[in-house]
Structures are given as structure tokens and as C-alpha cells.
């Protein structure tokens, strides 16, 4: 099991935070900004897609999607922050963990940091460190490709 990368976007689609762990393939053309734009666009469209195609009238939400090689876990707050985490296919549902990142770290270290302004990159070190520690402790995290047993 492996965790690859983590993104936070704000309501306008700006990537305000990025971190990677067991990611071995560098982003397309080595350009992260391009990747952020691509992902923001994808999430935005996918959300609209989900709402449009939902069989029920009540609001529906995107939880995760998977390809043949990876999974993307997704959590969106009512205030428009979008959290996305990519993992390999063996990882379990990690929506609750993303919620935890929001309520335990993001709110305390980013939102309540008086120097943090909306629409800016997150530079708070305590946030990065706490997130890193939390992600590394998840059962879905493994340092080596053969990690675990």
C-alpha cells in the first residue's frame, strides 16, 4: 500500500498546498503547475458531472475514483476547500482521514493562523510537519514498494 501525493485547492481552483511521498514518476514534463491546473479542472468538472448525473435529487458528492493504476480520494468542505490524495489501488477509503486533516490540522494551523491570507500558498511549517507525521502513520502508507509484510 502506498500514498503518492496530496493537494489542497481553494474555491477558485488554485492549488494552495502540495506534498508528495512515494511518488516515483515526476509530473508531466516536470511541471507541477500544469498538473495543478489539470487536477483543479478535473475535480471541478467531475463534481459538476456527479451532481448532474446523480440518480437522486439531493446533493451528491464525489468521494473517490480509481484508474487501473491509482486511486484519488476526495473531500470538499462547505467553505470550498478541496482535499485530494492519490494512493495505489490497495489503499482503503480515506475520506475520513482527509476530514481529519481538515479538522485537526488545516483549521488549527492554516485557517486560524492570522498571517494566512485566503488565495495564498500555505507556508505554515507546523501544518506541513503535522500532516507529514499523520500521513506516515496511516496504515496505507509504506516507504518501500514492498513495504509491510
Amino acid at each position: 500500500q502506498m500514498i503518492f501525493s496530496f493537494y489542497i485547492f481553494n474555491r477558485t481552483g488554485l492549488c494552495i498546498f502540495y506534498e508528495q511521498w512515494n511518488r516515483r514518476r515526476s509530473p508531466q514534463g516536470g511541471n507541477l503547475d500544469q498538473e495543478f491546473k489539470l487536477m483543479a479542472g478535473l475535480l471541478y468538472s467531475l463534481k459538476q458531472f456527479v451532481t448532474t448525473l446523480s440518480p437522486k435529487r439531493e446533493s451528491d458528492s464525489l468521494i473517490c475514483f480509481k484508474t487501473s493504476k491509482f486511486k484519488l480520494h476526495y473531500f470538499e468542505t462547505q467553505t470550498g476547500y478541496r482535499f485530494a490524495l492519490t494512493t495505489d489501488l490497495a489503499a482503503p477509503d480515506l475520506k475520513e482521514e482527509l476530514k481529519q486533516v481538515y479538522s485537526a490540522f488545516f483549521v488549527d494551523y492554516v485557517v486560524k493562523d492570522p498571517t494566512y491570507q485566503q488565495n495564498q500558498q500555505i507556508v505554515n511549517q507546523a501544518f506541513r510537519e503535522n500532516l507529514d507525521r499523520y500521513i506516515r502513520k496511516l496504515p496505507a502508507f509504506a516507504v518501500t514498494p514492498t513495504g509491510g509484510l
Binding site: T77, Q78, T79, Y102, V107, K112
Partner: peptide, 8 residues
């Protein structure tokens, strides 16, 4: 800011 604390 408080709204996020509230929602969380």
C-alpha cells in the same frame, strides 16, 4: 475563519 472551525 471561524466558519471552518465551526464546520469542523
Amino acid at each position: 475563519r471561524l466558519i471552518d472551525e465551526f464546520l469542523a
